[in-house]
């Protein structure tokens, strides 16, 4: 198994938290517009989330062995959610669906945060001479 650096893992976790936060923002927007006529529900583009994860796996070009394989934060795009039945006023937001997606995002954020906090603890442990 190839070696995975701490920096790469922390970067992936940070990326995960960014994407999840974006999902939370989009669900909150949908929920805010649950009674706005003609509003269409939006979601974070899956392709975008995936490609930014793949970019994280590939890393940036390094021309020196001492370079870190950092990469820019992938921008998140919004798409209209497909296949949702719309009401008579042209709005297709479903309260339960959005609340569920917010609860899920909150859980995923907690998971990534827990992992990242564990990583930070390890770093602190090393910095403090294993004390």
């Amino acid at each position: 198994m190839g070696q995975v650096s701490d920096a790469a893992i922390m970067d992936a976790l940070r990326r995960q938290m960014t994407v999840v936060a974006a999902r939370q923002v989009v669900a909150a927007s949908n929920l805010a517009n649950v009674n706005t006529p003609g509003y269409r529900a939006k979601e974070v583009g899956f392709d975008e989330a995936l490609s930014s994860k793949l970019a994280a796996a590939a890393g940036m070009q390094t021309t020196n062995a001492k370079h870190l394989a950092g990469e820019p934060v992938g921008d998140v795009t919004l798409n209209e959610t497909a296949d949702l039945p719309s009401r008579r006023d042209g709005n297709n937001v479903q309260i339960d669906r959005e609340l569920l997606s917010m609860a899920r995002a909150s859980g995923e954020f907690s998971a990534a945060q827990t992992a990242l906090a564990a990583k930070f603890r390890l770093v602190r442990y090393a910095l403090n001479d294993s004390r």
Binding site: A28, N35, I95, E98, S106
Partner: peptide, 27 residues
């Protein structure tokens, strides 16, 4: 009734976002 439901849903949303922010600050 529909306004009251939407109000509740948005309050719940604020609670969920607050949880996320405080988790981030825990780092």
């Amino acid at each position: 009734l529909s306004a009251a439901r939407a109000y509740q849903a948005n309050l719940t949303a604020i609670g969920l976002i607050r949880d996320m922010v405080s988790r981030a600050l825990d780092l």
